[in-house]
Design a protein around this nucleic acid. Structure first.
Lengths: 263, 263
DNA sequence: CGCAATATTGACCACTCTCAATGAGGGTGG
DNA sequence: CCACCCTCATTGAGAGTGGTCAATATTGCG
């Protein structure tokens, strides 16, 4: 396996722009929100109207915040390339990561009700996002019912996804958690046209551990054990899944079963 | 402390109809969805239109399912009185409870995206609910933008709430989890016009343990310890919080602080 | 009245955390 | 270009929180 890139920029982030364009297949080439809206069949004209309210934004560098916890809520963010983690700071100065967002995913939905961001959003690598001003989105969707319901669907998906995480944190052991996490990433990379077998993690062991409710050392040990067992090969942040079926069965998924409810 | 009720029907469920009516204060007297929609200021006429699409339903008895995991999705459910637990069955026959819903709360939002219920919903006590047909709700909300955005808000709240649970399951110890759970219930009862100091649990120790990612025995021990420490008195399902401030500080909440992000 | 479900309590043990030491990269500055 | 530092990752040893197993109430329900 060759190292794909030297500096902080990971393979995943680097080539995603190309893939994105292929996947989106529409005029609104610069924004992943279009992909989010494809399933509902907005026509070119409507997509254009959507496109016009979206602001592009200079890329966010690794470690920079997209928004802080407590910030007033103005925009949703659609990831174009790169990846974002969202986390809630705890009163004792620690944090709980609540989500990792890859290209084409929408974040900020949790802030609508309180009109404040309760999570912070931080870039895991150089990441470009679109800002979707909430007020204008709401306004536009009044005249585009299908857009409105697409937001419902995206929020519903977020709820489902988090319920899957609740199951992982509530019932799973350390190895099952890591397996579920890797399978989830694998599926998501596959959807984006990348390899589901081999990829680079944009998050640190610390982030993974935090997300999965484990200690860093435990995650490290699990990676080592998985490697011993021939489930995968891992070197720093590069992972190659060697026996996906066995990983899936660790999570309780049979061959071909849809990965609806985890990570 | 006197036992409030003999049979399965708990005090909470029994008197909630009265309280509900007081809280709702509108013509749509039979449905808690109205309360959900009050914040957006639907006028009487619009509320009436909303009311007309809602089906009342014969009460669900303790242990009966409102819907099973895998059922096709048709309706959202608004709890009028009683309580519902939602849980996702795991492949190995166990379950993870993902939410408890009290009067005035809306459930089923997670099923919109996949058009199937991924959780099952089961009554914890005799419970009455309103069915809100999704298609008709979507249709109606096309002509009522404020309704549409209220659904956004409710879904956003659900996401926030679950993120709070992620923090609890990911970072909190057993005693902190139970404290957070009790505080959350206390706050919710208070909102409904009940006592936040003394209430009956409609869920079993098993349910609480499952929800909090603990063993039944641990929950039982924590109740006992809390009682020893003078934090509360507990007898079977009746709980009287005696030192709410100390319970709150266990969760990391200072006096008067809003309980946004837990349980 | 008796069985089944629920709850409590104790003893033991294991999974995972904490603490600690070491190693490997990556970035910076000389 | 190399030395240095700092962060990140790995690995080991010991400890502790919480799980498992088991026994015993207590209650509800048929």
């Amino acid at each position: 396996m060759k190292r794909l890139q030297s500096r902080g920029t990971l393979a995943v982030g680097t080539s995603s722009k190309l893939i994105d364009l292929a996947a989106v297949k529409v005029a609104c080439q610069n924004c992943s929100l279009a992909r989010l809206c494809l399933p509902l069949g907005l026509d070119g004209n409507d997509l254009d109207r959507l496109d016009r309210i979206i602001k592009r934004r200079r890329p966010v560098r690794r470690g920079e915040h997209l928004f802080q916890a407590g910030d007033p809520f103005h925009c949703l963010y659609a990831v174009r390339s790169g990846s974002i983690k969202t986390y809630t700071p705890t009163e004792d100065g620690r944090e709980q990561i609540v989500g990792f967002y890859l290209s084409g995913e929408l974040l900020g939905l949790d802030a609508i009700e309180s009109q404040h961001h309760v999570c912070a959003g931080k870039a895991l690598e150089t990441t470009s996002v679109c800002e979707v001003p909430y007020d204008r989105l709401a306004e536009l969707s009044n005249s585009l019912p299908s857009l409105h319901r697409q937001i419902w669907r995206l929020m519903s998906r977020e709820i489902s996804h988090e319920q899957g995480m609740l199951l992982i944190l509530g019932k799973r052991s350390a190895d099952e958690r890591l397996a579920a996490f890797l399978i989830s990433l694998s599926e998501r990379f596959l959807q984006r046209g990348f390899s589901g077998r081999e990829f680079n993690l944009s998050m640190s062991r610390h982030d993974i551990a935090n997300y999965l409710g484990l200690a860093v050392e435990t995650v490290s040990r699990m990676f080592s054990r998985f490697q011993e067992q021939g489930l995968l090969r891992v070197e720093r942040r590069h992972v190659a899944l060697e026996d996906i079926e066995r990983l899936r069965s660790l999570v309780g998924l049979e061959a071909g079963e849809a990965p609806v409810r985890y990570s």
